[in-house]
Amino acid sequence: MMNDFNSSISNSVSSTPNAKWASIGSIFREEGHIYSLAAAGNMLYTGSECNSVRVWKNMKAFSGFKSTSGMVKAIVLLNGKIFTGHQDGKIRVWTLFDDKPTRLGYLPKTKHLLLKSLSPKSYVKVKRNRNVPWIKHYDAVSCMSVDEYHGLLYSGSWDKTLKIWRISDSKCLESVAAHDDAVNSVMAAPGEMVFTGSADGTLKAWRREFVGRRTEHFLEGVLMNQEHAVTAVAGVGGGGAVYAGSSDGLVRFWEVGKRMVACGGVLRGHKVAVLCLVAVGRLVMSGSADKSICVWRRGSGGVHECVAVLRGHGGPVKCLAAEEEGRRRWIVYSGSLDKSVKVWRVSE
């Protein structure tokens, strides 16, 4: 069901079509809370607690993928493929073939998993009485990020690992014991850096190197170590800055140079947990358990200004995605635990 959304919004937000920050629509899903979403062109993909991915075209119900892998916690897109991370630790790969949903397979592929299963050296201990092949997540896949230039997919999990997949042949190239608790967010930045945030309160920077066709990731530094969980990570295009949201309601950012990361400052817009972030152009948006979205504009010298607060959700804002609409103008989608996706037009 789709309907125009014109309920209460903050004074910072205008509902006129040509405003810099405007609410332009809302989509309601009866199936359950929205935990993940991704956008490309006029297509929107939403994941919920009911195992399925719903596909929307021009904000109208279009198609969908149904699985038995549990809650859809992450969705990323690349070259016509849709990757979904699930509660049961599986990564599923889909495509729309002639506008019909088609499942292409899993990560890892069954044949790769069987080959690894034959070698005792391929097993790692995950619990007191349980060993699994290292190429497989054994707990929920909580986050994913795509390095389009190198054709890599990064997946983070509640099993505390970061896994790196080569998209061309679906092979798991590496598994990194990244954190002491669940990996909540991962971002592959342009260049050679990857950032991970965890429930252990740390934000880590990793440096990627290639050894032949394989990858090796080395810990470049721990950018933050606190008692509050790091819940979301996002970056400015070109690798200029990285942002991390945490359960204390703060967004911290770092300036990223060539082989150097320096602390930039703190953005204070929420009083409860930040659950998601998205960065486009000079704008950074933070979604929170307080049901609002803060829009921050980055100025010269790393100075940030909160230019709008988007309100209207009836539950925590769990996920954000943005798609460029025109010069310095974007369509932003926000998914919430109120079972809705709201659509906003934002501009620098």
Rank of each mutant, 00 (worst) to 15 (best):
A273Q: 15
W158M: 05
P133Y: 03
I75H: 03
T84P: 08
K339N: 14
G85F: 02
R130G: 00
L113K: 13
S246G: 04
N79M: 01
S300W: 05
N3G: 10
S26E: 15
K109M: 12
T68C: 02
M43A: 00
M187W: 07
E174Q: 14
K66N: 07
R213F: 02
Q87D: 15
T68E: 15
E305Q: 13
A273L: 13
L115N: 14
E49L: 04
V124R: 12
K291T: 10
S12K: 09
M2S: 11
I331R: 14
S145L: 14
P190I: 12
D88G: 11
V295G: 06
A321D: 06
S67A: 08
A289Y: 06
G238F: 09
K258N: 02
R213Y: 06
S48E: 05
L44C: 07
T215A: 05
G212I: 12
R268Q: 15
V266S: 09
V266H: 04
V186A: 06
S175R: 03
D200R: 12
T16A: 10
K66F: 01
V55H: 04
C294K: 09
F253W: 14
C306V: 11
A140E: 13
L203A: 08
L115K: 15
G335F: 01
W21Q: 12
W254K: 04
E324C: 04
N131C: 12
R345G: 07
T84V: 09
F97T: 05
R166A: 05
V76Y: 02
S155H: 03
G151V: 15
G257Y: 00
N79G: 09
V13M: 10
K100I: 10
D169I: 11
S14A: 08
S198P: 10
W158G: 00
L162V: 05
S157R: 01
A273M: 13
A262M: 12
D169C: 12
G237N: 13
A205D: 05
N225H: 10
I91C: 09
I24M: 10
A205G: 11
G239Q: 14
S67P: 01
A61D: 13
I293G: 05
K171V: 03
T102G: 00
V230S: 01
T196M: 15
S15M: 11
Y45C: 00
